[in-house]
Write a protein that binds this DNA or RNA. Structure first.
Lengths: 238, 238
DNA sequence: CACTCTTGTTATAATCTATAACCTATTTTA
DNA sequence: TAAAATAGGTTATAGATTATAACAAGAGTG
């Protein structure tokens, strides 16, 4: 790691930081090499010394965002490590929303329709996409194994086509989970994700008013449906 | 309606159709006035006689998409009018996904992050956004009034902040619904929406394989949680 | 000191949205 | 019916954008 390399890394970091800032101001489409260069008091072509194209910069931002989301969730999970299972699951789910609301454009970059014509390179994206959920997966599996979590009757019978796919996918992805448990996890994710998406795109706020409260309310209902009682303490107030 | 007006409407329709087609090919960002003009064997500035800006064209596409989604759901609901309640609700929910999968870019246009720098004008968007759900709202209300649908215990206690907001919003929007029922509706929407979003952005397919089957599976679980038995017949196979 | 690689610059191509100025055919109206 | 107004198209042009090429100058190394 020479001095030059360190300077280079600094510049890369500054480019990404500037991009993120502009994205926060003008949405995911605010990423423009010219504007970034201007803000950094450089000329646009100079940026090509660091990123081969605008799309490659976007990819770098996506990678960072995925890791940042995963780190945020992981940190929250670490803090809740000693808490009872329902609270651990709630923590993971709440952290998901909290990061999304705190970083709406990054969230859109990851889970929404990103930039004009941009398509994320799957080989980079796919492995990263799993990281944020490793904690939740572990909680579910442990709760299931300990008997604390009983898979609701509605989920026990996994459709044949899905079962056939999971029989291949689960071992391939390195997960040792019962199929209905994975389905329950996907259902959980979709439920949380749907709320966050509707909130971020302003479809929920106008209706219910307090989106944070609704998220907790729905999360509580979900946990109760799972037979896990919702703990009163530790609720993030909105 | 003069002859000229008719021709004008035809041209507008052709512009929108061309835009939709290009969008289908190259994503929501594929909407480019130059490209549309080229495809129509016109020059780009000519399009400004019909739409004051690219954003206004996008708004027109969004309006069409909202109406198209609402019409699709309404048509499906009409066909299921005589069926039992659970099937009616299932029909609405299935129609939501089916339209989304059949028109992924339009769906992104409505519910995702649309075009560079574009922000939808709320005064046009907000009233339209409710149309697709009128049927579902009616089904829920009727089922609730007839006693067929009992609001799950987890939903009966609506958080104070939400309740305060709903006390204003519900009458304002012209809905005569109990608050927990509206929350249950929002929860339903978020659940379905989350699945559709994850499917469209390729986060679900790789995991479960058959997204259509998963949607039905989750919908069935949901209806059972509501105490409504999931009917075997009428399942759209995937 | 000289040689090379890195990192910046300016110049330029090709594309995009959008406006201006102009032309022409259709409609409206005196 | 002839003249005026207007709708709907054109080319020319301005100002962005991504991206490449060609060149300049500094940093590191022998």
């Amino acid at each position: 790691m020479t001095r030059r390399d360190r300077l280079r890394d600094l510049t890369i970091a500054e480019i990404k930081a500037t991009a993120r800032q502009q994205m926060a101001e003008s949405g995911t489409a605010g990423i423009s090499l010219s504007t970034i260069a201007r803000a950094m008091e450089m000329t646009a072509p100079a940026l090509y010394r660091y990123f081969a194209s605008r799309d490659q910069l976007v990819t770098a931002l996506i990678v960072d965002a995925f890791n940042d989301l995963a780190n945020a969730i992981q940190a929250a999970e670490l803090a809740a490590e000693t808490k009872p299972t329902p609270l651990k699951i709630a923590t993971s789910c709440l952290a998901y929303r909290e990061w999304a609301i705190a970083h709406p454009v990054d969230f859109q970059l990851i889970y929404g329709n990103p930039i004009p014509g941009y398509v994320a390179p799957a080989e980079i994206t796919v492995p990263l996409a799993r990281r944020p959920f490793n904690g939740l997966i572990r909680h579910f599996l442990e709760a299931y194994r300990s008997g604390e979590l009983i898979i609701p009757i509605q989920y026990t019978l996994v459709p044949a086509t899905i079962s056939a796919h999971l029989a291949v996918w689960l071992p391939e992805a390195g997960y040792d989970l019962p199929e209905p448990l994975l389905c329950l996890l996907m259902s959980t994710w979709a439920r949380m994700h749907g709320m966050v998406m509707l909130e971020i795109f302003e479809h929920m706020g106008p209706v219910v008013g307090d989106c944070a409260a609704f998220y907790r309310y729905e999360l509580g209902a979900f946990l109760q449906q799972l037979g896990l009682t919702w703990p009163k303490e530790g609720s993030t107030d909105g």
